[in-house]
Design a protein around this nucleic acid. Structure first.
Length: 599
DNA sequence: CTAGGGTTAG
C-alpha cells in the first residue's frame, strides 16, 4: 500500500514549525489531516499513516478524518471508513450525520442516524437538526414526523435550532400549516426562525404571504439579514414587485450589507424578472465574485427580455473569464437564442455542449431547440431534430414545443397529429386540450372545438386560470378574467371600455370571434375585452402618474389579440407598458413591442 | 483537540 512507500515520520513532522498555540492543541497527525483538507488521495495517505502509527483508536482523529472524507464528496469512502470504527461515540455520529446531510448525502445521514440508535447512543439537539434537514431534503414525510415525535420524547421540543429545522421540514413536505403552527408556538423566534418561515411561504409559491411575514418581522423589531432578503427578493421576482425590490436594494446599500454572490444573484434575478435588466447588469458588474449561478442568472435575464445579442456576448465572456457553464447555463443560452431568433448561434451552442464542455443535453435543451426552430418557422428543422432523438427522449414536453410551433405557424395537419398523440399519452394535462381546440378554432372547425371541450369536461379537467398582477405603491393587486371582487371593479371596467374604443379609433381591429373562443362557460360571457392583463393595465393607468411605466406580470402567455391591443394602448395612453408573461418580457412603447412580434 | 439551524439560477 501507499503507506509503505511513504515515510510517515517525514509527513507527520514537517520541516517548518507550526505556531506554538497550534502545535500545543493539535497532534501532528491532526495537523496532517488539516493540511490534507477535503481531498481523497491526501486523506488516504494520512489515513494510512494513522494506521501505521496505531492511532486508529483516537476517536477525535478519526472523526476529523471522517468529516473531511465526507466533505470530499466521496460518500463511499466515508461509509467504508465508518465501518472500520469499532466503537463510535456520540461525537463521531453527530459529526458524521451533520456532514452527510450538509453535503446532500441524505440517505446516508439517515443510515448513520439509525446506526447511532442501534448503538444505544442518545441523539442530541445537534443530531436532530441534521437528520431533520436530511428528511426535508428527501421529502421523507413519514420518517420526519416520526423523528419529530422522537424529538419531543427526548426533550428537545423547544430547542430553537431543532424547531427551525422542523419548520423547513414541514414546509418542504407540503405541510405549510404545521410549519406555521410550529413557528407561532416558538418561545423565542430568532432571525433564522423568521427566515425559515418566510422561505417556507416563498418556496411553496405563496409570495404574498412571504412578504406579509417579512413586514410582520419588521413590526416585531427583528433585524433582517441577507438570508431574509434572498427569500424576500425571490418573492418580489415572482410577483414582479419592483417597488419592494428597490426598497430592499436601498436598504442593503445604505446599511452597508455585504452583497455576496448569493444576494447579488437574487438582485439580478429580481431586477430581471421585474423588467429592469439594465439594473440587473449594474448589480452583476458591481459584484466581487461570480459563480456559475450568477453568470447564468444574468444570461437568463437578457434572454427573457429578448436581448439575444447581449446574452450571447455575456456567454462569450463567461467562456473566457468565467466558470464552466453547466446544463442550466445552456438552458438560458438556448432559450435566449430561441427568443431572439439566433438560429445559427443556437445550433452552435447546442453542438458545443458535448464537444467542448462534456455536457449531455437533456429534455430541457431539446425543448429549447424545437422551440427555437419552431418560432422561426423552421418546422422541418424542428421535426428533423425530433426524429434524431432517441425514442426514450421523446417526452411530452418535446411534442408540446412542436405543437406550439404548429399552432404559431398554422400547420394544422401536423398540429392535429401531434396534439392527438399528446392527448393519448398525457390525457390529464389540460394544456393539450386548449392547444388542440385553438387549432380547430382557427381553422373554423367549431364542431371539433366543441368535441374537445366536452372531452375535457368529461375528464374533469380545468383550464389554468389566467391572472395578472400589478404593483402600485408597493402593494400587489391581482386581476383575473371576470373577477369582480376588487372594490373599484366598475371604475376599472368603465375605464377599460373607454380605452378600447379609443384604440379602435386609432386603428385597432379586434380578432374575430372564432379565434377568441373560450373553453369554459363563464369565460364566454366576457369576450376578449376582459383578459386579465387588460384589466391590470386599466387599473395601472388609473392609479399611477403618467411618468412611470406600467408593469404587469401574467401567469400564462398573452394571446395575440391582447398583444395587438396593448400596442394601441401604449399609443393612446402614451405610456410604456412592460408585461412579463409565462415565458418572456414584452416592452410596449409607441405602438410597437420589443419582441418584434416574434414570440 | 473535534460540532450546531435558514437562503441562490431554467
Amino acid at each position: 500500500m501507499e503507506a509503505k512507500q511513504l515515510q510517515p515520520e517525514e509527513q507527520l513532522y514537517p520541516q517548518h514549525r507550526e505556531p506554538q498555540s497550534q502545535s500545543q492543541s493539535h497532534s501532528p497527525a491532526y495537523q496532517a489531516l488539516l493540511r490534507a483538507g477535503p481531498q481523497v488521495r491526501p486523506l488516504q495517505q494520512v489515513h494510512a499513516q494513522i494506521i501505521v502509527l496505531r492511532k486508529y483508536r483516537n476517536l477525535a482523529l478519526i472523526t476529523k478524518l471522517l468529516t473531511l472524507a465526507c466533505a470530499t464528496g466521496s460518500i463511499s469512502y466515508t461509509r467504508r471508513l465508518f465501518l472500520t470504527v469499532p466503537n463510535p461515540d456520540s461525537f463521531l455520529f453527530n459529526s458524521l450525520i451533520k456532514g452527510s446531510s450538509k453535503f446532500s448525502f441524505s440517505n446516508d445521514a439517515i443510515f448513520f442516524y439509525r446506526r447511532m440508535l442501534l448503538a444505544n447512543i442518545s441523539p442530541s439537539n445537534y443530531t436532530f437538526t441534521s437528520v431533520i434537514k436530511a428528511c426535508a431534503d428527501l421529502s421523507a414525510s413519514r420518517l420526519g414526523r416520526g423523528i419529530h415525535s422522537h424529538v419531543l420524547v427526548c426533550g428537545y421540543g423547544s430547542d430553537s435550532f431543532v424547531q427551525a429545522a422542523l419548520v423547513t421540514f414541514y414546509a418542504k413536505t407540503g405541510d405549510l400549516g404545521v410549519a406555521r403552527k410550529l413557528f407561532d408556538k416558538m418561545p423565542e423566534r430568532t432571525v433564522v426562525a423568521w427566515n425559515s418561515m418566510i422561505s417556507a411561504y416563498e418556496q411553496n409559491g405563496f409570495s404574498k404571504e412571504a412578504i406579509g411575514l417579512f413586514y410582520q418581522m419588521r413590526e416585531w423589531g427583528i433585524k433582517p439579514d441577507s438570508t431574509t432578503f434572498v427569500s424576500v427578493l425571490s418573492a418580489c421576482a415572482q410577483l414582479g414587485a419592483i417597488g419592494l425590490g428597490c426598497w430592499v436594494h436601498d436598504y442593503v446599500i445604505s446599511n452597508g450589507f455585504d452583497v455576496n454572490v448569493v444576494l447579488g444573484t437574487s438582485f439580478i434575478n429580481m431586477f430581471s424578472r421585474c423588467g429592469n435588466v439594465t439594473k440587473a447588469r449594474e448589480v452583476f458588474d458591481l459584484m466581487s465574485e461570480w459563480n456559475v449561478i450568477a453568470w447564468t442568472a444574468m444570461i437568463s435575464g437578457y434572454g427573457m427580455h429578448g436581448y439575444g445579442k447581449e446574452a450571447m456576448e455575456l456567454f462569450g465572456k463567461m467562456r473566457i473569464h468565467g466558470p464552466r457553464p453547466n446544463n442550466v447555463t445552456f438552458v438560458a443560452v438556448l432559450s435566449a437564442c430561441a427568443h431572439a431568433g439566433l438560429i445559427q448561434e443556437g445550433r452552435c451552442a447546442f453542438g458545443s455542449m458535448r464537444k467542448e464542455f462534456g455536457l449531455v443535453p437533456g429534455v430541457e435543451h431539446h425543448v429549447c431547440m424545437v422551440d427555437m426552430f419552431g418560432r422561426a418557422g423552421l418546422l422541418n428543422d424542428a421535426h428533423a431534430f425530433i426524429k434524431e432523438l432517441n425514442p426514450r427522449e421523446l417526452t411530452p414536453a418535446i411534442w408540446t414545443a412542436m405543437l406550439g410551433a404548429c399552432k404559431m405557424h398554422k400547420n394544422f395537419d401536423l398540429g392535429v397529429e401531434v396534439a392527438e398523440h399528446l392527448l393519448a399519452v398525457e390525457p390529464e394535462n389540460p394544456g393539450h386540450y386548449v392547444l388542440l381546440s385553438n387549432i380547430y378554432a382557427v381553422t373554423g372547425k367549431m364542431d371539433r372545438v366543441e368535441l374537445v371541450r366536452n372531452l375535457m369536461i368529461r375528464r374533469g379537467l380545468k383550464k389554468q386560470v389566467g391572472y395578472s398582477t400589478i404593483e402600485v405603491d408597493q402593494k400587489t393587486y391581482l386581476f383575473s378574467m371576470g373577477d369582480k371582487s376588487h372594490p373599484e371593479t366598475n371604475e376599472v371596467y368603465r375605464y377599460l371600455d373607454k380605452l378600447m374604443s379609443r384604440c379602435r379609433e386609432a386603428g385597432y381591429v379586434p380578432a374575430p370571434e372564432s379565434v377568441m373562443h373560450e373553453l369554459e362557460e363563464e369565460e364566454r360571457e366576457y369576450a376578449l375585452r376582459y383578459h386579465s392583463e387588460k384589466l391590470a393595465i386599466a387599473f395601472g393607468l388609473l392609479k399611477t402618474s403618467s411618468s412611470v411605466a406600467i408593469r404587469i406580470v401574467k401567469n400564462l402567455r398573452m394571446c395575440e389579440d391582447c398583444h395587438s391591443a396593448i400596442k394601441y394602448i401604449s399609443i393612446v395612453s402614451n405610456r410604456e407598458i412592460i408585461i412579463r408573461d409565462k415565458l418572456r418580457f414584452h416592452h410596449f412603447n409607441d405602438g410597437s413591442c420589443s419582441c418584434l412580434d416574434y414570440w
